[in-house]
Amino acid sequence: MSDLVLEAVKVARYFDVSKPWLQRALTGGRRTTLRAVDDVSFAIPKATTLSLVGESGCGKSTVARLAVGLYEPTSGSIHFEGQPLSAARAQASLRRRMNMIFQDPYASLNPRWRVRDIVAEPLRAFRILTSPRDVVARVGELLTQVGLTPADGEKFPHEFSGGQRQRVSIARALSSAPDFLVCDEPTSALDVSVQAQILNLMRDLQQRLGLTYLFISHNLAVVRHMSDRLGVMYLGRIVEIGPGEEVFRTPRHPYTRLLLDAIPDLEMVGKARTPVGGEVPSPLAPPPGCPFHPRCPLANDRCRVERPGYTVAGGTLVACHAVEEGRGEARGYSTSAV
């Protein structure tokens, strides 16, 4: 199992979102728990990309934070290169090998620091390089690697456009020479032509440096472009996970089909489609049984009471009673992907 960079087994993360104690005592309210992530398992082999996709509130960003140890799991375990993540985080030599790229390149860079200091901070924090001359050389190298010039190091973040700032974030994330990067919606704040630059850059870097990515996005087309494996999340659970190509070509879970159907696509120009009704229920009060059953065209009585386990279907794992019983295909449920 040595080629797995990250392995999560039945990870859950709950948040206590109760009203303050006094208010509860006076109004008779009860504790409320938000199950942001529930029973999530996945593994990421070295030098590959696992993407997690889902709508807002499905828990994908919480998984990203769990994966780098910014949150402790409520239950379950996460291992980084075979060691428990908490133990790995305690060792600087392992901690420097994981890093994170955030969504907002405007908020994640300190506006009062020059870019050279932003990029050099991990080098100094981990005492990777100590002589100022080495640091300058390394920062120049990193900036060149992400398509900027060493001279850009003298500038402040506000002097850059959104795409260039995201390049600075990537240079900073790469400066401690990590193997594992968690990218939480790295391109959703960017325009499409700039998004293409960043996605190309990230794939080039992956090939050149053998990086492993956990890639979080709500954009299925971006995810398709980036991933080797793909997990689809709904209300804190992974409802379908498997090789990216297979999930896109033969989506099995009704929610995956809904997502693929709902995305406006250039290929759909001039064609009509039937939108699926309903919205994601509040994660504070998830429906019993399968969380997707209120919107699911294939739901029956079993789905309303019993939570589905995983069924192996082809190379993917699907959490759906209908797939397990072979109900979906029988009714000729079609997707617009044809």
């Binding site: 499409v192 032509s193 293409a196 087309a221 398709r224 472009h225 696509d265 250039l266 290929e267 992907a337």
Partner: peptide, 9 residues
């Protein structure tokens, strides 16, 4: 612009 949009297909 059209070429820079990742495709689902």
């Amino acid at each position: 612009l059209m070429g820079s949009i990742p495709s689902l297909e």
